[in-house]
Write a protein that binds this DNA or RNA. Sequence first.
DNA 1: TAGGCGTGGTC
DNA 2: TGACCAAGCCT
Length: 352
Amino acid sequence: MRDMPDTIALPRILLDWYDIHAREMPWRVGPAQRKAGVQPDPYRIWMSEIMLQQTTVATVRDYFQRFVTRWPTVGDLAAAQDADVMAEWAGLGYYARARNLLKCARAVVDEHAGEFPADHAALLKLPGIGPYTAAAVSSIAFDLRHTVLDGNVERVMARLYDVHTPLPAVKPVLMERAEALTPAKRPGDYAQAVMDLGATICSPKSPACGICPWRDPCAARAMGTQNELPKKTPKKPKPVRHGTVYLAQRTDGAWLLETRPEKGLLGGMLGWPGSDWVDTSAPLPKGTPPVAADWQALAGEVRHTFTHFHLILTVQLAKVPNDTPGDFVPRTRFRPSDLPTVMRKAYDLAQG
DNA sequence: TAGGCGTGGTC
DNA sequence: TGACCAAGCCT
């Protein structure tokens, strides 16, 4: 590799490493299979990439298996009931992804004859597919030369070239570096290789530089700056909000639940009726109980942290008659696992 | 364009 | 234990 330009030598070194160290994933076609002519299923690649947005591989595995078992093709998913998809997504977070997942599946069926487009620009127009996911699908599923730039690649590029300008402002610079390294041959394997490298060797804390295939060309390692890169602009502190939720159960066991509005926090998900969630804690916002009943405040509280605020909920519980009006979910159809985590925590508190 | 949008694991 | 972090997108 001596005297070979980085843009030739570095991708080759990384692909050689990937041939040996590629991680197994349910949606992945490994380097050996790929060389034997096996093509990935674009539907499964797309599904995995949506789930993997801001979410770890370990968390995604089980959700992925349940989704592709229940809806094996994009046509099956497009025909699904919205509530079934939202319930299956419950607990995975960022619920706009689930709403866009359905919109995207239906767009593929309606506008692309049920086949995912390979073209980057066409993918970018689909709901829930941004620059990263368009590049990931076109490269991994169709082996087209596009460059993925996720948190892993940002970190690897910042270290490889010892870039100290903070994210996210420096993102375009890192993209240029990443694009220059993307090879024309095996761009799909290469995309997965850089991300595997970032996830396993070039980790945020204590990177394993000693066993890194790029240890020799890495500028941060040469300077000893790998542990302080990438730099990030400081985040704003999270405020604390307070609220009250009301858990009404009929004598026959049915629970009073509501489907939350499509837009906003936990949009489209099931939840308990309750107050607004407000920054001040005095007085505690109680809202209006959904039905007149003998409400009992539970001891303790629900604590939950969202992306941009901490939440402390008081939980009110009541037994109500079977003829109480409202959208009660029958006991046999109620599954706590259909609820987003913060709502499931309130249920768990009520169960003692 | 910067902020809204979840959750679980790690240290 | 609180802060950071994870294969980002939308408005």
